[in-house]
Lab assay of single mutants.
Amino acid sequence: NMVHPNVICDGCNGPVVGTRYKCSVCPDYDLCSVCEGKGLHRGHTKLAFPSP
């Protein structure tokens, strides 16, 4: 899995490795796959980016 450079997960404050989930509503909100799997930020649609 690749690390998305200059992207920090807003759920756990860790690096985003593998798929990046970017909120389509909020201007700067990203989740890693673990936090997305936990259902964080469920109210907004997210775009999935498998690689940087």
Results as ranks from 00 to 15, higher is better:
Gly39Pro: 04
Gly14Lys: 09
Gly14Tyr: 05
Cys23Trp: 00
Val3Pro: 07
Gly37Ser: 11
His44Tyr: 01
Cys23Met: 02
Lys38Leu: 05
Lys22Val: 06
Gly11His: 12
Glu36Trp: 05
Phe49Trp: 10
Val34Gln: 12
Glu36His: 08
Gly11Asp: 05
Leu31Thr: 03
Asn1Met: 08
Asn6Cys: 07
Gly37Met: 08
Val7Ala: 07
Cys23Gln: 00
Asn6Ile: 04
Ser33Trp: 05
Asn6Met: 09
Val7Glu: 09
Arg20Asn: 06
Val3Glu: 11
His44Asp: 03
Gly43Val: 14
Cys26Met: 02
Ser33Gly: 09
Leu31Ala: 03
Thr45Ile: 13
Asp10Leu: 11
Asn1Trp: 00
Asp30Gln: 12
Leu47Phe: 05
Gly37Tyr: 10
Gly43Met: 14
Pro15Arg: 13
Lys38Cys: 05
Pro27Tyr: 05
Pro5Ala: 04
Lys38Ser: 08
Leu31Met: 08
Cys12Ala: 01
Ile8Cys: 13
Gly14Asn: 10
Val25Leu: 08
Cys26Ala: 02
Pro50Asp: 14
Val16Ile: 14
Arg20His: 07
Asn13Met: 06
Lys22Arg: 10
Gly43Asn: 13
Ala48Gly: 09
Gly11Val: 10
Lys38Glu: 11
Asp30Thr: 13
Asn1Gly: 03
Lys22Trp: 04
Asp30Leu: 11
Gly37Pro: 05
Phe49Ile: 15
Val7His: 04
Tyr21Gln: 03
Thr19Leu: 07
Pro5Val: 08
Ile8Lys: 15
Gly11Pro: 01
Val17Asp: 14
Gly11Thr: 07
Pro50Glu: 14
Pro50Asn: 15
Lys46Arg: 09
Cys9Pro: 02
Val16Lys: 02
Thr19Tyr: 07
His41Glu: 02
Val17Gly: 10
His41Pro: 01
Gly14Ala: 11
Gly11Lys: 10
Cys26Phe: 01
His41Gly: 04
Pro5Glu: 15
Lys22Ile: 06
Lys46Gly: 04
Pro50Ile: 05
Met2Ile: 11
Phe49Pro: 06
Gly39Phe: 02
Gly39Val: 02
Pro5Asp: 06
Arg42Gly: 14
Leu40Trp: 09
Thr45Arg: 13
Asp28Pro: 01
His4Trp: 13
Ala48Met: 15
Ile8Asn: 12
His44Asn: 03
Phe49Gly: 10
Val7Trp: 08
Met2Pro: 06
Gly37Glu: 14
Asp28Cys: 06
His4Asn: 15
Asp10Ile: 10
Lys46Glu: 04
Glu36Ala: 04
Cys23Phe: 01
Arg42Phe: 13
Tyr29Glu: 02
Gly18Lys: 07
Thr45Gly: 11
Gly14Glu: 10
Ser24Pro: 03
Phe49Ser: 13
Leu40Ile: 15
Gly37Lys: 14
Pro5Lys: 07
Thr45Gln: 12
Met2Ser: 07
Lys46Asn: 14
Asn1His: 05
Gly43Tyr: 11
Val7Asn: 09
Asp30Gly: 08
Val16Ala: 04
Ile8Phe: 07
Asn13Ala: 07
Val17Leu: 11
His4Met: 09
Pro50Cys: 08
Lys38Asn: 11
Ser33Tyr: 07
Cys26Asp: 03
Phe49Leu: 14
Asp30Lys: 14
Cys32Ala: 00
Thr19Asp: 12
Ser33Ala: 13
Glu36Phe: 07
Asp10His: 15
Asn13Val: 05
Val3Trp: 06
Thr19Val: 12
Leu31Gln: 06
Pro15Asn: 09
Val3Met: 09
Cys23His: 01
Ser24Arg: 11
Gly39Trp: 03
His4Val: 13
Met2His: 01
Lys38Asp: 05
His4Ile: 10
Cys35Leu: 01
Leu47Trp: 08
Arg42His: 13
Leu47Ile: 15
Asp10Thr: 15
Cys32Phe: 00
Pro52Leu: 04
Met2Tyr: 00
Glu36Leu: 06
Val17His: 13
Cys35Glu: 03
Ala48Gln: 12
Ser24Trp: 03
Cys12Asn: 00
Leu47Met: 13
Ile8Leu: 13
Asn13Trp: 05
Cys23Tyr: 00
Leu40Met: 13
Val17Phe: 08
Val25Glu: 06
Pro52Asn: 04
Pro15Phe: 05
Pro15Glu: 15
Tyr21Leu: 05
Asp28Lys: 15
Val16Gly: 01
Ala48Asp: 13
Met2Asp: 03
Val34Lys: 10
Asp28Gly: 11
Tyr21Ser: 03
His44Val: 02
Asn1Gln: 04
Met2Thr: 06
Asp30His: 12
Cys26Gln: 02
Leu40Gly: 06
Ser51Cys: 14
His44Ala: 02
Met2Asn: 03
Cys35Arg: 01
Cys35Trp: 00
Val25Asp: 10
Phe49Asn: 12
Lys38Ile: 06
Leu31Gly: 03
Ala48Phe: 08
Val7Met: 10
Arg42Leu: 11
Gly39Arg: 06
Gly18Ala: 04
Leu31Ile: 07
Cys12Asp: 01
Val25Ala: 05
Gly37Phe: 08
Asn6Lys: 15
Asp10Glu: 11
Pro50Ala: 11
Pro52Lys: 05
Gly18Phe: 04
Glu36Asn: 09
Asp28Met: 07
Lys22Pro: 02
Asp30Tyr: 15
His4Cys: 13
His41Val: 02
Pro50Met: 08
Pro5Gln: 12
Asn1Glu: 13
Arg20Ala: 12
Leu47Cys: 14
Ser33Asn: 12
Lys22Gln: 11
Ser33Lys: 11
Tyr29Trp: 03
Pro27Glu: 07
Asn6Pro: 05
Val25Cys: 05
Cys12Ile: 00
Pro52Trp: 00
Asp30Arg: 06
Ser51Pro: 15
Asn6Leu: 07
Ser24Leu: 03
Val3Phe: 13
Cys35Val: 01
Leu47Gly: 09
Arg42Thr: 15
Cys32Met: 00
Met2Ala: 00
Pro5Trp: 03
Pro15Gly: 08
His4Asp: 14
Pro52Gln: 07
Leu40Lys: 14
Gly14Arg: 12
Gly11Asn: 10
His41Leu: 03
His41Gln: 02
Gly37Arg: 09
Cys23Arg: 02
Gly18Leu: 04
Ser24Gly: 06
Ser33His: 11
Lys46Tyr: 07
Asp30Phe: 15
His44Leu: 02
Lys46Pro: 05
Leu40Tyr: 08
Leu31Asp: 01
Val25Ile: 10
Leu40Pro: 04
Cys26His: 03
Cys9Ala: 01
Lys38Arg: 07
Pro52Tyr: 05
Ser51His: 15
Gly37Ala: 13
Pro5His: 04
Cys35Thr: 01
Asn6Asp: 11
Pro15Val: 11
Cys9Gly: 01
Arg20Gly: 14
Val16Asp: 03
Thr19Asn: 09
Pro50Thr: 12
Ile8His: 10
Pro27Gln: 14
Pro5Gly: 06
Cys9Tyr: 00
Ile8Met: 14
Tyr29Ala: 06
Arg20Tyr: 14
Arg42Trp: 06
Pro50Gly: 08
Lys38Gly: 05
Ser33Pro: 08
Ser33Met: 08
Tyr29Asp: 01
Lys46Asp: 03
Ser51Asn: 15
Pro15Gln: 08
Cys32Trp: 00
Gly14Leu: 10
Thr45Leu: 07
Cys32Ser: 01
Val34Ala: 10
Thr19Gln: 07
Cys35Ile: 00
Cys23Asp: 03
Cys32Val: 00
Pro15Tyr: 04
Arg42Gln: 15
Val34Glu: 13
Thr45His: 06
Asn6Arg: 10
Leu47His: 13
Cys9Ile: 01
Val16Met: 03
Val16Ser: 03
Leu40Arg: 11
Cys23Ala: 00
Gly14Ser: 11
Cys9Gln: 01
Asn13Ile: 03
Ile8Glu: 10
Glu36Pro: 00
His41Ala: 03
Val3Ala: 08
Cys12Gly: 01
Gly14Asp: 08
His41Trp: 02
Cys26Arg: 02
Val17Ser: 14
Gly11Phe: 05
Cys26Thr: 01
Val16Pro: 01
Asn13Arg: 14
Val25Phe: 07
Gly14Cys: 08
Cys32Lys: 02
Pro27Thr: 13
Leu31Arg: 02
Val3Asn: 14
Tyr29Leu: 04
Cys26Tyr: 00
Tyr29Ser: 05
Cys9Asp: 00
Leu40Val: 09
Pro52Val: 07
Lys22Tyr: 05
Cys12Ser: 01
Val7Gln: 05
Arg20Val: 11
His41Arg: 01
Pro27Ser: 10
Gly18Arg: 04
Val3Lys: 15
Leu31Tyr: 04
Gly14Trp: 03
Ser24Asn: 10
Pro52Ile: 03
Lys22Gly: 05
Gly43Lys: 13
Cys26Lys: 02
Asn6Gly: 13
Cys23Ser: 03
Gly11Ser: 10
Ser33Thr: 12
Asn6Thr: 04
Val17Trp: 07
Ser51Ala: 13
Asn1Ser: 06
Asn13Asp: 04
Gly18Trp: 04
Leu47Lys: 14
Asp28Ala: 08
Gly37Cys: 08
Gly39Ser: 10
Ser33Glu: 12
Asp10Met: 13
His44Glu: 02
Cys26Glu: 02
Pro50Arg: 07
Pro52Cys: 04
Lys46Met: 14
Pro50Trp: 05
Pro27His: 08
Val7Arg: 06
Pro15Cys: 07
Leu40Asp: 07
Thr19Arg: 08
Asp30Glu: 09
Asn13Thr: 09
Cys26Val: 01
Arg42Pro: 15
Gly11Cys: 08
Pro15Leu: 09
Glu36Gln: 07
Asp28Asn: 15
Val17Tyr: 12
Arg20Gln: 08
Met2Lys: 11
Thr19Glu: 12
Pro27Trp: 04
Ser24Gln: 15
Gly11Met: 07
Pro15Ala: 14
Asn13Cys: 07
Lys46Leu: 15
Ile8Thr: 15
Gly37His: 12
Glu36Gly: 01
Ser24Ile: 05
Asn6Ser: 09
Val3Asp: 08
Cys32Arg: 00
Ser51Tyr: 06
Thr19Met: 10
Arg42Cys: 13
Ser51Thr: 10
Val17Cys: 14
Lys38Gln: 10
Met2Gln: 08
Leu47Thr: 15
Gly43Gln: 15
Pro52Arg: 04
Leu47Ala: 12
Pro50Ser: 10
Thr19Gly: 06
Cys23Gly: 03
Val34Ile: 15
Met2Val: 01
Ala48Arg: 11
Pro50Lys: 12
Val3Cys: 10
Val34Phe: 07
Tyr21Met: 04
Cys12Phe: 00
Ile8Gln: 12
Gly18Thr: 07
Tyr21Ile: 05
Thr45Lys: 12
Pro50Tyr: 04
Glu36Arg: 04
Val17Glu: 09
Val25Ser: 10
Val17Arg: 14
Asn1Asp: 11
Gly37Thr: 13
Thr45Asn: 14
Cys26Ser: 01
Gly11Glu: 11
Gly11Ala: 11
Gly37Trp: 06
Cys9Ser: 01
Asn6Ala: 07
Val17Thr: 15
Tyr21Phe: 14
Thr19Cys: 11
Arg42Ala: 14
Gly37Gln: 09
Ile8Trp: 08
Cys26Gly: 01
Asp30Pro: 02
Val17Lys: 14
Cys9Leu: 00
Gly43Asp: 15
Cys12Pro: 00
Val17Asn: 14
Lys46Ser: 09
Pro15Ser: 09
Tyr29His: 04
Val7Ser: 09
Cys12Leu: 00
Arg20Lys: 12
Lys46His: 11
Leu47Ser: 14
Gly37Leu: 11
Ser33Cys: 06
Val34Met: 12
Thr45Met: 08
Arg20Ser: 08
His4Ser: 14
Leu31His: 06
